[in-house]
Amino acid sequence: MSSPAPPSGAAPTPSLLRPWPQFLDLSALSLPISLSEATYRLTQNLRYFLPNYVVITLLIFLVTLVSRPLSLILFLCIFAAWIYLVFLRDEPLTILDYDIDQKIILGLLAVMTLVALLWTKVWLKLLISLIIGAVIVLIHGILRAPEDSMEDSPYGSLLNVVDSPGGEHASV
């Protein structure tokens, strides 16, 4: 059986990676004009680029494991399982004609990840990589202006007046 098609105007699935050229577009970077604009940009970019931020943070973690090759191989296998079982599948996992609930899969993967962290003793490396990843996410999220920033920005109407020298005037 197939799942019903999403509505034509539906937003893309949030679990999909956004194109890397769009993520790394230097022309979209600018300083925010205020603290509220910075928080707005951060929340919009977190919603839109969350899978990309997760991949970057995981890559940083894997780079910190280069000095421990067995741990690196173990976590590469675990991350491959996470990516395949959670992010790349659209239909339920079926084993011997039995559909496995997504909550069971998430629970097993979480337990497997925690056991691997305890067994390999890489908590400090994980903490350092999470801090570095959070700093990168914070910097990118604040500096990148979302495409829809003019429509949804708290300064949208003010920015429109600034953009057009005559402003928007109603005819009398």
Rank of each mutant, 00 (worst) to 15 (best):
M1A: 15
S2I: 12
S3R: 14
P6R: 15
S8N: 11
P12G: 08
P12V: 06
P12S: 09
T13M: 13
L16S: 10
L16K: 13
R18Q: 06
R18I: 01
W20A: 04
P21T: 08
Q22H: 08
L26R: 09
A28T: 12
L31I: 10
P32S: 08
L35M: 12
E37T: 04
E37H: 05
A38S: 14
T39V: 11
T39Y: 13
T39Q: 12
Y40R: 01
Y40V: 05
T43L: 13
T43P: 04
T43R: 15
R47Q: 10
Y48R: 04
F49M: 03
L50Y: 06
P51K: 04
Y53H: 04
V54A: 07
V54K: 00
I56Y: 01
I60A: 02
L62T: 02
T64S: 06
T64L: 05
T64A: 02
L65V: 00
S67Q: 09
S67H: 04
P69R: 12
L74V: 05
L76P: 02
I78V: 08
F79Y: 07
A80L: 10
I83T: 13
Y84E: 04
L85W: 12
F87R: 11
P92L: 05
L93P: 12
L93D: 06
L96M: 10
L96E: 10
L96T: 10
D97P: 02
D97C: 10
Y98Q: 14
D99E: 15
I100F: 14
I100Y: 09
I100A: 11
D101A: 11
I104L: 14
L109I: 09
L109F: 07
A110Q: 01
A110S: 03
M112T: 07
M112W: 07
L114I: 03
L114W: 03
A116R: 00
L117D: 01
L117C: 02
L118E: 08
T120W: 01
T120I: 02
W123T: 08
L124K: 06
L124P: 08
K125E: 01
L126Q: 01
L127K: 05
L127N: 03
S129H: 01
L130I: 05
L130T: 06
G133E: 05
A134I: 04
V135A: 08
V137N: 08
L138A: 14
I142P: 15
I142S: 12
L143C: 14
P146N: 05
E147L: 11
S149H: 15
S149W: 13
S149L: 12
M150G: 09
D152P: 02
D152L: 13
D152A: 11
D152W: 09
P154W: 04
P154T: 05
Y155G: 08
Y155E: 11
G156L: 11
L158S: 15
D163W: 15
S164N: 15
S164G: 14
S164I: 14
G167L: 13
E168H: 15
H169T: 15
S171A: 06
V172T: 14
